[in-house]
Amino acid sequence: MASVLIVDDQVLIRAGLAALVRAADGLEVAGEAATGEEAVDLAARRTPDVVLMDIRLPGMSGIAAMERILAAPEEPKPKVVMLTVFDLDQYVYAALRAGASGFLLKDTPPERLLAAVRQIAEGEMLFAPTVTRRLVETFARRTEPADGPAASLEALTVREKDVLRLIGRGLTNDQIARHLVVSIATVKTHVNRVLTKLALTSRAQAVVVAYESGLIAVGGGSPVGPPH
C-alpha cells in the first residue's frame, strides 16, 4: 500500500485529489496540507511514499518545501510529484534540479494520475509529454552554465554511464532492460548505484545530470518516453 501526501492551497483541488486516492486500489492518503510549511511537517510525521505537491504555493513555495522534505533525515525519502497548471511553467526546470521525481498537469485525467502515482511509488519518473518537451527545450536554449559545477561521471562504470544515458532519454527500467538485454533487477541495481554515486535523490535529477555533464548532446534526438 503506497501512501500519498497531498499538498495544494485550493481546498477543492486538494479534496478532489484525496477522494481520488482513497478510492484507488493500493493507495492511501497519508495526509493533506494547504501550505509548504504544513507539507514539511506532515512529511516528517507521516513518512509518505509519494508527495503530490502544487508547484506554486503561497509563502513557502512547492520547490522550497520539496527541498526541505528531501533534506530531512527520515528514510526512505518520499518521491515528490509536482502539480502545475501550466505546461510551460517557469519553475519546472528548477524543481527538476531540486529533486522532483516528475510532473503532472492539474487537468491530467484521473486514471492517468493514479497510474502516475503508482509509477512514481515504484521508483520510476514521470513527466507530462509537454513538460518533457519543455525540459529538452530548456537545455537547448541554455546560454549560461547551471548553478554549481556539472556533476562528474568519473565514478561511474561504462555500463552505469550507459544506464544514465538511457535514463536521460526518458526510458523506464523495463525499456532499459530490453535495450541492454539484461534483467530488470540488474537495471534497478545499476540505477541505484548511479543515484548513490552521484548523490542524486531522483531519476529526474539524473536526467538533468545526463544533459549538464554532456553525456547527452543537446539536439541529439527527442527523448524516448514510457508508453502511455
Results as ranks from 00 to 15, higher is better:
residue 1 M to A: 10
residue 2 A to K: 09
residue 3 S to M: 07
residue 5 L to V: 11
residue 6 I to A: 02
residue 7 V to N: 12
residue 7 V to W: 01
residue 14 R to Q: 09
residue 14 R to F: 06
residue 15 A to E: 15
residue 16 G to F: 04
residue 17 L to S: 07
residue 20 L to Q: 04
residue 21 V to K: 00
residue 23 A to D: 11
residue 24 A to R: 12
residue 28 E to R: 14
residue 29 V to Q: 05
residue 33 A to S: 15
residue 33 A to N: 14
residue 33 A to I: 15
residue 34 A to C: 08
residue 35 T to I: 04
residue 36 G to S: 13
residue 38 E to T: 06
residue 39 A to F: 01
residue 42 L to R: 14
residue 43 A to V: 13
residue 44 A to S: 02
residue 44 A to Q: 08
residue 47 T to F: 00
residue 47 T to C: 05
residue 48 P to K: 10
residue 48 P to E: 12
residue 49 D to G: 12
residue 50 V to K: 05
residue 53 M to D: 05
residue 56 R to M: 06
residue 56 R to K: 10
residue 58 P to A: 01
residue 59 G to H: 07
residue 60 M to W: 03
residue 62 G to Y: 06
residue 66 M to I: 04
residue 69 I to G: 13
residue 70 L to A: 09
residue 72 A to H: 11
residue 77 K to E: 01
residue 82 M to H: 07
residue 82 M to N: 09
residue 83 L to Y: 07
residue 85 V to G: 05
residue 89 D to L: 00
residue 92 V to H: 01
residue 94 A to L: 14
residue 95 A to Y: 11
residue 96 L to H: 04
residue 102 G to M: 03
residue 102 G to C: 11
residue 104 L to W: 08
residue 105 L to Q: 08
residue 107 D to I: 13
residue 107 D to H: 10
residue 108 T to K: 08
residue 109 P to D: 01
residue 110 P to Q: 05
residue 112 R to E: 12
residue 112 R to D: 05
residue 113 L to S: 09
residue 113 L to G: 06
residue 118 R to W: 03
residue 118 R to T: 09
residue 119 Q to A: 09
residue 119 Q to H: 13
residue 122 E to W: 02
residue 123 G to D: 07
residue 124 E to W: 03
residue 124 E to M: 00
residue 124 E to R: 01
residue 125 M to W: 12
residue 126 L to S: 12
residue 126 L to F: 10
residue 127 F to N: 15
residue 128 A to H: 13
residue 133 R to T: 11
residue 133 R to M: 05
residue 137 E to S: 11
residue 142 R to T: 04
residue 142 R to Q: 15
residue 143 T to D: 08
residue 145 P to S: 12
residue 147 D to V: 08
residue 149 P to R: 00
residue 150 A to G: 07
residue 151 A to Y: 06
residue 152 S to M: 07
residue 153 L to F: 00
residue 154 E to G: 14
residue 154 E to S: 13
residue 157 T to A: 14
residue 162 D to G: 15
residue 162 D to A: 08
residue 163 V to G: 07
residue 165 R to G: 13
residue 165 R to W: 07
residue 169 R to L: 09
residue 170 G to M: 14
residue 173 N to A: 09
residue 173 N to K: 02
residue 174 D to L: 08
residue 176 I to R: 10
residue 179 H to P: 04
residue 180 L to G: 03
residue 181 V to S: 09
residue 181 V to N: 07
residue 183 S to K: 03
residue 184 I to K: 04
residue 185 A to F: 02
residue 185 A to E: 06
residue 185 A to N: 09
residue 187 V to L: 05
residue 189 T to K: 08
residue 189 T to V: 11
residue 191 V to K: 05
residue 191 V to W: 06
residue 192 N to I: 00
residue 196 T to P: 02
residue 198 L to V: 02
residue 199 A to Q: 14
residue 199 A to R: 15
residue 199 A to I: 01
residue 199 A to D: 15
residue 199 A to L: 13
residue 201 T to F: 05
residue 202 S to N: 01
residue 202 S to R: 04
residue 202 S to A: 01
residue 203 R to Q: 15
residue 203 R to W: 10
residue 204 A to F: 11
residue 205 Q to R: 05
residue 206 A to Q: 12
residue 207 V to T: 00
residue 208 V to I: 07
residue 208 V to C: 04
residue 214 G to V: 08
residue 214 G to I: 10
residue 215 L to I: 01
residue 215 L to N: 02
residue 217 A to H: 12
residue 218 V to A: 12
residue 221 G to I: 14
residue 221 G to M: 07
residue 224 V to Q: 13
residue 224 V to F: 04
residue 226 P to L: 02
residue 228 H to Y: 14
residue 228 H to T: 13
